[in-house]
Design a protein around this nucleic acid. Structure first.
Length: 141
DNA sequence: GCCAACGTTGGC
DNA sequence: GCCAACGTTGGC
């Protein structure tokens, strides 16, 4: 069981849109970065992730679950790009902002801080725990 | 809207 | 295989 973080610009694909897809989930298309793609290839069914709003909001707004393993990205014919499907699991009771993350020394190594531009990131279990605690999700899922 | 960071491309 | 040019991301 691993933890991840998915970035999305709310103008393009928001948490509300993700939630509207319900249990069916949605393909996480559009990733054109090898490192992010490789992270998706590593994902297992039922792995959990944070849903983060970039550009606007700049906060973790919810929890998602991987509901389909990596497969070719249907938004391109380029066979290099793959993606998983994810579905919304629940809201963060109190969204955790990037500012909050940066202000917490326990989260200094988080990819969100150290690899700003990576759009699909791994999250360590201790980081998962801490962000959930900050967001009012105790115990962490 | 700006621009720093950084990944990718392409000439050599 | 190096590295300059270029394009994109994303915080501010």
């Amino acid at each position: 069981m691993a933890y991840w973080l998915f970035k999305s610009e709310p103008d393009t694909w928001s948490w509300d849109q993700q939630k509207a897809k319900g249990m069916a989930g949605e393909e996480w298309t559009g990733v054109r970065n090898y490192q992010a793609r490789n992270n998706m290839r590593e994902m297992q069914l039922r792995d959990l992730g944070f849903f983060y709003h970039s550009n606007e909001g700049l906060e973790v707004v919810g929890i998602v679950e991987v509901c389909r393993l990596a497969h070719p990205d249907s938004s391109t014919d380029d066979p290099r790009w793959e993606c998983v499907d994810i579905r919304a699991v629940r809201d963060m009771p109190n969204p955790v902002t990037l500012k909050d993350v940066k202000a917490n020394p326990k989260l200094a190594d988080m990819s969100l801080v150290t690899s700003m531009r990576l759009s699909v990131q791994p999250v360590r279990p201790d980081e998962w725990e801490e962000v959930c605690r900050m967001g009012g999700l105790v115990p962490a899922p």
